[in-house]
């Protein structure tokens, strides 16, 4: 974590934000170009450090960041990346969101990337949020393909995604939305004795026809 010099603060403040309160940037120290997230135009967190933000998940305070951040005069270049340039924006953003432990409904809007895949676990084979044309209705939740790899059974899905319905979510739908579909990404909050902690992705306006496949059935437990 780096506290950015004033001169770079001014550069960053002249550029648009990637989302509310942060910019995703590429910066150069020595000959090495790296990516990271800048908070409030003053604290730079390398993309490999985002996991460490979890320590602040119970009360994200800017002062905590400032105490921890080290000043650096070694940054030679810094530029805010446009969304099109950020191949791994979702991974970075998701890591950041995990650190902040924010549910999807409270997250800022982001966009799907090319060929990104999502999964939806359901206790219902005839899941009504899947349209007859193979799309998703607006306001439908999914998870990322990567997060879904943590789930092998319907019971595990109930626990990881804190589903109030105890019936095992054994039907798994695959969603392949077009690039730039509007979503909100966050972390599932615990519910009663269910741990949560999985990634949740809310499709704000749904997903068009012919973008949902399945379901595939997994074991109940």
């Amino acid at each position: 974590m780096i506290r950015i010099e004033k001169k770079w603060e001014e550069v960053l403040l002249s550029k648009p934000e990637t989302g509310m309160g942060y910019q995703i940037v590429e910066y150069k120290i020595g000959r090495i170009k790296q990516k990271g997230i800048v908070l409030n135009a003053e604290i730079l967190i390398n993309e490999n450090e985002v996991e460490s933000l979890k320590q602040f998940s119970l009360g994200l305070k800017e002062t905590k960041f400032l105490e921890t951040a080290e000043s650096s005069r070694n940054i030679e270049e810094i530029e805010v990346l446009s969304r099109k340039e950020i191949i791994s924006i979702d991974e970075i953003f998701l890591g950041f969101m995990k650190g902040m432990n924010i549910p999807a409904k409270d997250a800022k809007v982001s966009y799907t990337t090319k060929n990104e895949v999502f999964k939806r676990f359901s206790a219902f084979k005839n899941d009504k949020r899947i349209t007859p044309e193979g799309g998703l209705l607006p306001g439908t939740y999914t998870t990322t393909e990567e997060d879904a790899k943590n789930v092998k059974t319907g019971k595990e899905a109930v626990d990881r995604y804190a589903l109030p319905n105890d019936d095992p979510a054994i039907y798994v739908f695959t969603v392949k939305p077009p690039e730039d579909t509007e979503v909100k990404r966050g972390v599932v909050q615990p519910l009663d004795d269910k741990k949560g902690g999985g990634v949740e992705v809310l499709f704000i306006n749904g997903s068009p026809s012919n973008t949902v496949e399945g379901p595939v059935e997994i074991p109940a437990e």
Binding site: K128, R129, G139, Y141, A162, L163, N165
Partner: peptide, 15 residues
């Protein structure tokens, strides 16, 4: 009611 609910967003995956 099903029709009404399908026009409203989910609270979480499947509910």
């Amino acid at each position: 009611w099903v029709k009404k609910l399908l026009n409203l967003p989910e609270t979480g995956m499947g509910y």
